[in-house]
Design a protein around this nucleic acid. Structure first.
Lengths: 241, 241
DNA sequence: CGTCTGGTTGATCTAGATCAACAGGAGTGG
DNA sequence: CCACTCCTGTTGATCTAGATCAACCAGACG
């Protein structure tokens, strides 16, 4: 896969911080300036990979816009989509901090702008600004609770519920409303990947979609999902917490 | 539940570090001394709780010897054993660092010695020794990979495999060998809790034990497990990784 | 004694996996 | 252009691990 990097118009970290809810709010102005100078803003197109499983981790990546999917390749060569990464989130930091090769690949799912901060800059920042370690720490703690939550959901919710939940998340991020009041989601991933994401077999995914259509909650046409009655849809969502 | 605290003979952190594989190896001598002076060594008996879900997190706990179980109480009042904590591990740090009440209870399962380091000491250490934040960080990262691994296991392994796996872990920690060459495990938890731990219904736990006995892998008598043929037993263990 | 709690057994149910067939594109190569 | 293979997705039939429901038993404990 040919990776096409391109230095774009460099958005300042300051702008990025204010627009998205990134997790670098703790940093002092001067530290931010260091990052600002050290970072490289990269533009990717769908299908490209930010990094590959097994690659050496040379730094951290903060996604500014677009959508990324984390995939893991198992020993049999099956690739599974394990998580979606939205703007504001930082990836690659775990492998980097552990000084281990990346344990999964980051694949671009929608046109994305990603800021890369290289090893030396991060190292320097970690030395000069102790707050950064704490910030990474709280990031990791958040990931941990998140993972636990997702685990709980996967045992207590059934396939349909999990699918509806993911659809809702995607709707919140990418949903649009047509002039006739219908709500649209353009799915950024294949059925296969969707199945991986909720942890079912692809056949089950198909049937679950059928059930959802049968109940009039949404209509699926290729990768576009149409929700005519958003209230009805929401009433079938799992209750938070 | 009456909590009985008791200041024991204070083992030095230095000794503790060398004997168990604790995660505080990064600290400088002087930092360790600070902890050494600030920590309180506490002795608990089975049934007592180190902290309760909902309690304010006032510091961190490093388990020196014994065994602790983390329990979570859901909204319906059911308590589920979610994890075992062995000597050398540190608990309570997540809630403490997030400045949130403890999200689960820590129940003593075997007579334990636990070192408590209070809020102010940790705060001071975090300020003076930036390496500590990194150490917490790597702890949290380890917890994260661990959680992900356990999640994978819970979907890919079936009940019998998971039970055998846990038995093996317990054997490694607490297993003994009789003079007639039989291997013994004294289970520190009830069937109920064992079922929670591997994520099944108690009925399934019973039946799984029956299957295991039927295959001659082990014999269960109350809380003691007898393994006569350890090789056979190990051949049925899931392959690592 | 009754009552309770933890564990075992049996019977039944079900979500979802698995296996197999097939349909529609999208290439690819002749 | 057609024939061929791939690849993704859909459908149908069957299978199974484990949950659930219910009864029961034994020890603990008032």
């Amino acid at each position: 896969m040919s990776v096409m990097l391109q230095k774009t118009h460099q958005t300042s970290c300051f702008d990025c911080l204010s627009s998205s809810s990134s997790e670098w709010g703790c940093l002092t102005k001067s530290s931010l300036c260091v990052i600002d100078r050290a970072k490289v803003s990269l533009t990717y197109s769908p299908g490209e990979n930010v990094f590959n499983q097994g690659d050496e981790a040379n730094g951290i990546y903060c996604i500014q816009s677009g959508l990324i999917g984390l995939r893991r390749l198992d020993q049999d060569g099956n690739s599974t989509l394990i998580r979606l990464i939205h703007p504001g989130e930082t990836i690659g930091y775990r492998s980097f901090l552990k000084n281990m090769p990346h344990c999964n690949s980051a694949e671009i799912l929608m046109p994305s702008v990603v800021c890369f901060v290289g090893r030396s800059a991060v190292r320097k920042l970690l030395e000069t600004s102790p707050a950064l370690a704490l910030e990474f720490l709280s990031h990791s703690l958040r990931d941990l609770t998140q993972t636990e939550k997702r685990y709980m959901e996967s045992v207590t919710w059934k396939a349909k519920t999990r699918l509806l939940h993911i659809l809702f998340v995607l709707y919140e991020k990418f949903g649009t409303e047509t002039q006739c009041g219908e709500h649209l989601i353009e799915l950024p991933i294949s059925r296969q990947d969707l199945a991986d994401l909720i942890g079912t077999a692809p056949e089950t995914m198909s049937r679950t979609i059928q059930r959802i259509e049968g109940e009039g909650l949404a209509r699926f046409d290729g990768r576009t999902v149409r929700i005519s009655n958003l209230n009805l849809f929401c009433r079938h969502l799992p209750h938070p917490q």
